[in-house]
Amino acid sequence: MNTHYHKQLTLRNRVEELTRVEAFLEELATEWDLPVKLILNLNLALEEAVTNIMFYGYDDEEVHTILIDFTRQDDLLTISIMDDGHAYDPTARPDPDITLAAEDRPIGGLGIFLIKKIMDQVEYERKENKNYLTLNKRIEQ
């Protein structure tokens, strides 16, 4: 059976919007019949990506829109995050050294690394003054 689903979520660049990500994913879990563990991981990947944009993407105090596009084609899930913040390629960031002891471990710098570990594929593109971060994940039931 061929399945194709599509859904969108629009967020303002405000941290409170994260509760909407949570609620949206709960809906998605039911509608697309996705396993709980996957939803937890998607929530984490999205939180890390979106908070990066919110905290570092803008210099002004204006309200900006972050558009998140969800597609499911059979067992392949694709999430595309689009924002109009500064050009920033998170995939180019070097991975943290996870073997360091607590005293030597820097505080932070873990978010992007978590996304890369959780998702199967992470791609960045800059088009028409917008950042596009595309995350792929194969659904295992």
């Binding site: 937890l40 929530n43 607590a102």
Partner: peptide
């Protein structure tokens, strides 16, 4: 605890450094 993100992990690291 049913969810933690890097912001939460950061706090655990802060606590570890503080107490040690």
């Amino acid at each position: 605890l049913n969810y933690i993100s890097s912001s939460g992990l950061r706090v655990f690291l802060v606590l570890q450094k503080r107490l040690s």
